[in-house]
Design a protein around this nucleic acid. Sequence first.
DNA 1: CTTCCTTACTTTCCCTTGGAAAGGTATGGT
DNA 2: ACCATACCTTTCCAAGGGAAAGTAAGGAAG
Lengths: 388, 388
Amino acid sequence: MVPGMSLADQPPAAVLVFQTLLVHGSLTRAEIGRRTGLSAGAVTKAATPLLADGWITELGRPAGERASGRPATPMAVRADRARFVGVKVTGDELIGVLTDLTARPLASRRAALDSRDVGTVVLAIARLIGQLRAAAGAEGDDAVHSVGVTISGDVDGQTGTVQYSPFLDWRRVPLAQLVESASGIPTVIENDVRALTVAEQWFGAGVGLSSFALVTVGAGIGCGLSIGGRVVSGAHGVSGEVGHLPVGGTDRTCTCGNTGCVETVASTHAITEQARQATGDPALTMEEAVRLAHADNAAVRAVFSRAGHVMGLAMASVANLIGPERIIISGEGAASYDLFADQIRQTFADHAFGAAADCDLVVRPLPFEEWARGGAAVAAQRVFAPAK
Amino acid sequence: MVPGMSLADQPPAAVLVFQTLLVHGSLTRAEIGRRTGLSAGAVTKAATPLLADGWITELGRPAGERASGRPATPMAVRADRARFVGVKVTGDELIGVLTDLTARPLASRRAALDSRDVGTVVLAIARLIGQLRAAAGAEGDDAVHSVGVTISGDVDGQTGTVQYSPFLDWRRVPLAQLVESASGIPTVIENDVRALTVAEQWFGAGVGLSSFALVTVGAGIGCGLSIGGRVVSGAHGVSGEVGHLPVGGTDRTCTCGNTGCVETVASTHAITEQARQATGDPALTMEEAVRLAHADNAAVRAVFSRAGHVMGLAMASVANLIGPERIIISGEGAASYDLFADQIRQTFADHAFGAAADCDLVVRPLPFEEWARGGAAVAAQRVFAPAK
DNA sequence: CTTCCTTACTTTCCCTTGGAAAGGTATGGT
DNA sequence: ACCATACCTTTCCAAGGGAAAGTAAGGAAG
């Protein structure tokens, strides 16, 4: 990868042009000028080195052509210009994906984690990266540009340190550096939900929005916020902790010691537990609960309905506070979204104040690899959005 | 005001220099260079036209001098370079202040509103502006640079339109234009809480923070958010609607039709009403309630305590979602803050998740003129923060 | 077929901006 | 008197992007 590993050394206009293409897929120079406010000359000037370096490419004439005038030459990002590996670390397994520059998955691998020991996990990550690198077609060591590792908890992406991870019980682990040493590839780390938010902002349902929130429903309930093109990090590393908003009533106690947390009602675990109580079957699984609910079991339906209500309250809280353009509902739990949907929308509409109700709710069921893709997106972002 | 009405035509570096001085009070060129990252030469270059135009001024030697080297020449913003009028419109009165460039009040006036008719209110605003202009010392018509009008509700500052004001029952009123015509002075409008947030960001407890939230307690409960130096507006004009977060329990119904809204428990009105129930005195006033609480009336104290609890929950929600560096508690209600304080802090500490609890809580009791000052700050901001 | 028109893209020139570095200046110390 | 030490100024210079003129490519009109 000889000429330029990132766009950091390009002028601002070139970065703008590239990002515009990244987000819009394929545009002519004239159109880029219109969208970015750059002059026509500036676009040409910026695009030339990008073309030379292989970051973007000119496309053939598009089908629908205008009647008169010189035909336009659309351009697009060359997604294969760089490859990234994203790794999501959970308490018991690793999920890895190999992606192109647009964070599109090319291959994926999983690996079980039998220990939460830092050294062991780092080695497992390095091994996973190696497998994905091999899957890439093995064009030499530098086929993968960089690696993004994501993990839930308090992660400081600047210093590359995991401040605290509840699932792994890690504190102050300089993970980025460790993985970098073990794998030999530049590595960045980020909180998992924020990474997913980055992925949505650039390549998903958040493209082009001035602000959006991403709510993930699963083992925990998370929320990423993107405002004005920046993912909110929180002054102390905490943000989007929607799982502990105190809106759920007083009957269930959370691991954090409080009552009413959204997680006590709407997490996968909480739903399973409540369904067990409702049915009297102490071995009921989430899948069975979903089946019962679909079969119109009133008691189990009530559990899902309550979860939907609480999620609706949480989303209304987000909408009332931030006023995002859109809320994206995602996570493993989104698979059984039909069970929550009506209740979420109903509660949201009731509690969103005034124009906040105009916020649109979008569901995006996400395969588990998507989590790992977030890491790749964060890594890719370093390439095309330098010095954020 | 001949040479330059605003900094919009100055190079970015000059704007930076000015803002740095505005926020830090008084700095030497060298120090400005260090803080902004500009080179020494660039600072001199930027400062020269600012000095020539009277935006800033050089100060005499400071007392504490270094031992060796050429003495530094501190500079500071010339606050008297421009004057602004801020007007806060409530349902029954206008509050106006005349301020300097740093939004420091020079004079204030109030005027009762006997009608909510748009034309009447606009005339009253224009009259108030006239009085304040006279108070300025009447150095001619252009003594006041511009006017900022603030009003609660859904306000679109870009177009200068009040989309909806519950207190005045206005819809789609192009207030900025109307006031501008009636007063002959350029006018901007903004939501009252956001305006106050702007004032705090530049001139108050929010100076220099990467993010903060401003919670106002009074007739309503409001919240302004500043993230990364920008006040959050919400995609649909709604943001910071902390008053309708559903954390208050189910026993009291809000004007919005829901139960549990913060406002149903913690607004001045709600507290008075609850105190009346608690004492059985249907004519009890807020002042009397405060007195009773200070006299250790258990029932009334419980009312304040519950209000504090709910406010603590609301602030914890803000902290969990946004992760601000600081939460500023303000508004008329902050005067009797001692009655809420313990409960707020207790509840906040309990419900703020992890490092979100590191967010510092600051109380800033605010005189009612402060609301009007917000308007002046918004007007002033147009001068020194062009093209936000 | 020639000419003209329209639109897209390219080139050239210029202005603005801000950095680097060297020079100037005010002070205290020797 | 000379120096050391900052601070401030000046002078250059390079980069970025705008404006406008020039070029390319196709269609339409005569």
